[in-house]
Design a protein around this nucleic acid. Structure first.
Lengths: 205, 205
DNA sequence: TGTACATCAGTGAACGCGCGTTCACTGATGTAC
DNA sequence: TGTACATCAGTGAACGCGCGTTCACTGATGTAC
């Protein structure tokens, strides 16, 4: 057991984890501070030893999510190197993989309604993730003739949007309908076609 | 005034409209039945003359949204005819236009967490919208050589995902950050590059 | 090793609040004669 | 045209609930002597 310290031990992190599992199970609306406290085996009032309140707890869960997310993006980027194309494709895949593996974090980050500008730490972590994708886009844009090159920030936004859309519409059961294709395939082919449109993949395969 | 009938007149629709404006102003979480009743100038209990409860009211708001949405998609499709390409592009644009013009409906439909399978009417209306986009994709796929043609449902899903992602990430202030480009441009160029990747637009412009 | 003390994480009771929902009712309207 | 009645949309009071938050407290732990 990680019961270092006295009394509970590591209540702060236990509360974050309880919050994550509740958010994952019942959606951002279903989460309550009282229930998170209960799940951690503690009185609601105890939460206030570690957090300013309900929203602060969610924000911390989101922050940890952004850290993991940024690390994942960075790792994917590095793994794709030195190929700009491989790096770019890997970061797209990392988005979906993150949503799959960390649904609680994902919801806290993108569906709980908390703003990324809430705290500097939150902002910093999310910027880190965004920067990795933009760097990958930047690398890639070197391979497009300068005169017909769209801004890197633009096609990083395109891929970000397609990834987000695939996750929201087809990888989570939001609109109730089942996905017509495996989300991974959908994203893979979608990005493939898009990159072909940029002239970065030969038209025939 | 539309005070037909006696007493309030058209309370049912007034409640839907109150719900929409509250959802738009305060998010799906901020909406409460009591406040909607208050805004319509009526006691909370009066709501139960017209709806089964809170969720039923949101569902009706979403249903009306899907009807408007499907009509808009159909109109866009028709306007693009007889060009398959024009029809397809127009439906993509219609998605964003809808989110812009009917934010309350949009949130009720896509962010309130109510399932499309909640009622047959809701399901029917959403299927109508999806069908228009898929028909547009089907038309378009005729212009791709049969041997290298991806399933129409797949690239309708791609465009749906990109549209949804652009709206969520850049047209609404969800993650707090401002958009790097006007969402309309982002979607326009994104779909353009994608269609080029499909070989439906000449590589040089 | 043993005792006295300081620390502070977590307790437990209480609060005010607004929620969704119920119920018997009331009174404005439409209708029958 | 006038009166008696039926309808039923909306009222107002009440409910039980769980929420987030506060507060004085307690008691397990670490530390000093």
């Amino acid at each position: 057991m990680a019961k270092r310290g006295y009394h509970h031990g590591n209540l702060r992190q236990a509360l974050v984890e309880a919050a994550l599992s509740l958010i994952e199970a019942k959606g951002p609306t279903g989460f309550t501070l009282s229930e998170a406290a209960k799940q951690a085996g503690v009185t609601p009032a105890a939460v206030y030893r570690h957090f300013d309140g309900r929203d602060d707890l969610i924000a911390e869960a989101a922050r940890q999510g952004y850290e993991i997310f940024a690390d994942l993006m960075q790792y994917a980027y590095d793994k794709g190197q030195p190929s700009a194309l491989a790096s770019f494709e890997a970061t797209g895949r990392a988005y979906l993989a993150f949503a799959r593996q960390h649904p609680g974090h994902y919801i806290a980050m993108f569906e709980s309604g908390i703003s990324v500008n809430r705290t500097p730490e939150l902002n910093h972590a999310s910027a880190r993730a965004r920067d990795v994708l933009e760097r990958a886009a930047q690398d890639l844009s070197q391979h497009i003739p300068a005169d017909k090159r769209p801004p890197a920030a633009m096609f990083s936004a395109h891929v970000w949007a397609m990834s987000h859309g695939v996750v929201e519409l087809f990888a989570r059961n939001s609109p109730g309908t089942a996905s017509p294709f495996p989300p991974e395939d959908l994203l893979e082919t979608g990005i493939g076609i898009y990159l072909r449109g940029l002239g970065l993949i030969p038209p025939d395969e």
